[in-house]
Design a protein around this nucleic acid. Sequence first.
DNA 1: GCTTAGCACTCAGGGATAATGAGTGCTAAA
DNA 2: TTTAGCACTCATTATCCCTGAGTGCTAAGC
Lengths: 360, 360
Amino acid sequence: MELSERKKKVLRSVVDLYIRTAEPVGSKAITELPDMKYSSATIRNEMAELTTMGYLEQPHTSAGRIPSAAGYRLYVDELMLDYRLSVDETKSINSAIEEKMQRVDKMMDRVARLVSQATNLPAISAASRSAGARVKRYELILAEKGSFILVLMLTDDQVVNKLIKLPIPVSETDLKLLSAVLNAAMTDLTADDFTEALLEKVMASAGAAASLVPVIVDFTQETLRARAKTDMAIAGQARLLGLPEYRDVDKAQRVLASIDEEALSNLPAVMQSASGTKVLVGPENVADELKDTSVVMTSFDIGDGMQGMIGVVGPTRMDYAKVTARLTYFAESLSKMFGKPETPQLPERTDAKAEHNKSE
Amino acid sequence: MELSERKKKVLRSVVDLYIRTAEPVGSKAITELPDMKYSSATIRNEMAELTTMGYLEQPHTSAGRIPSAAGYRLYVDELMLDYRLSVDETKSINSAIEEKMQRVDKMMDRVARLVSQATNLPAISAASRSAGARVKRYELILAEKGSFILVLMLTDDQVVNKLIKLPIPVSETDLKLLSAVLNAAMTDLTADDFTEALLEKVMASAGAAASLVPVIVDFTQETLRARAKTDMAIAGQARLLGLPEYRDVDKAQRVLASIDEEALSNLPAVMQSASGTKVLVGPENVADELKDTSVVMTSFDIGDGMQGMIGVVGPTRMDYAKVTARLTYFAESLSKMFGKPETPQLPERTDAKAEHNKSE
DNA sequence: GCTTAGCACTCAGGGATAATGAGTGCTAAA
DNA sequence: TTTAGCACTCATTATCCCTGAGTGCTAAGC
């Protein structure tokens, strides 16, 4: 059933107010809004109907109304007015990214931290790599204490390393040889390409360090397989405690614990299916602990067939418009940063400027 | 002034009980302890004296006593009975380390997570590198989209990488040449060894990619300098909320925020001075937000002149004995793992096998 | 027929007051 | 020196009442 324009306006007002105040919204409060030209009695009638229709609910008889999950859903899908990022906001997001995103290794960490700062909510970021990541180069570095470091450079520009104990003494020269052999024979393979036959062939030509090959291959396969999953990070959990709905410590703890653990690991999977920005309102969440909590997420392009995801977790009463806008902008900036083939910045940094202009 | 044996026993009992229950301890409760052969009145007298001596305090007239900071201090320094780790505990710590600590890159992350799990408290881990870290090897990898990855392998076995945009088109061959030149001329230098003269010399022989040299040197110096500071991680913040003293959300938030931010960055510095296990009771803490909170930390050896640190943050009423024992054991295991030159474990389980187990 | 003023009703939240009980200090007897 | 006993203190909890915000409904007004 279609809602009348007036009902929509009332519903939107209720959600907006509730987002701002975290308190049940009464008919009088609505009346006092600018350009709401009806008396409180009329509003009451409308609210009563919205309640029977399931968009609002009443915590108790003599309190105002709060949006139900269905109410939020409708709000997010149709009612919500676009939040326009101010120039300042885009600027601060841009410069945050500029500054902090240079290092490749702890990237997801940084992204999560930045998103959390920008939204003042706990944030998650994840990079779901394509199943087909391959090794671009092997490096073996002799370390002291009878061990060496294996460094894998992957086609997705990630660098992974592992400290491995040497079962037998091996010389620098042996390692050089081994690494040459590996680079010649075992690059550009997916996890499943490491056949027994190949393994033996490599070991045959690997000289003194041949016994290291199985260990290296094991780790490589494991890494490639793990890469197919995700690399994720969480930041800003403590921000949750600032919100009135999480003054109930038990609740806060439950939510935090479920964010901390793998409960959210399946979020990236959810993301996988649909791209673009997605809002999960309260009960739509998979994890039980989050039934009371909303999740907003969006994906971005890391290039090379890989996808990144950023998201925040917050109360069902969160400022969906603002959060969505910031998240989306973030995602766009990140996509631009490493997704698209054009060079993001030439020496003079003219491009960066151009981006700013465009967002105004 | 020396305390009588009986006073010590009473004080120890009060602290022990308070650690367990988080409630003020009354004279009756003490009486009910096994091998406490005095009546409540006697205990009351002793407690009264301990109070005037400053080791105990009373939240209000008709409540039991709780330890004062001085009381905790004395407890930690002299009274605390050694907590003996059970075989199970050492086993689980060992296997956790075995399993999770193989990868070099997110090491501090993992350590923090493990320590937090083992103590059920928020944990911090940091590696303070020696100021003298040097570059062991440079690798330059051409990436798509007109950029390349610079990988630095440091003498401390850490691997750092950065994605750098190419200001000009450069071929794979150019990069190879450049990398050879860098490795020949610029390894094993400290941050201050990169002189203008050297820079020019390298650029002269670097061919087409010479213009990359300054960028690379900049990042290298920056990295070496940053390494001189610390690499740190925090985990398990949410565990704080499980404790009764942090049911006050505001307090919890203050503490969490201060852990999250750099407030604790100076802890590693504190650690620097004294090695061994250190307990900071409440007010002894530097950061104001932690006046109510204790910190236990200990250092471990990463070898090569570098030092690691692990620590936990918890209520002043924390189980110092247990926490200290676990932390110390952790530190020893970690030291053994990469600090000492001897191979950590010789038993029939050969090293190689140990590693394999992991992937099963 | 929609809108609104008016009114009786409900109920959460916030004092105020009282009852409870754990714990204390002190004294006097063992 | 230890301990039993007693009067006293005071945080905590329960109870009651009041207040005020908000509601639904009805009847009058446009």
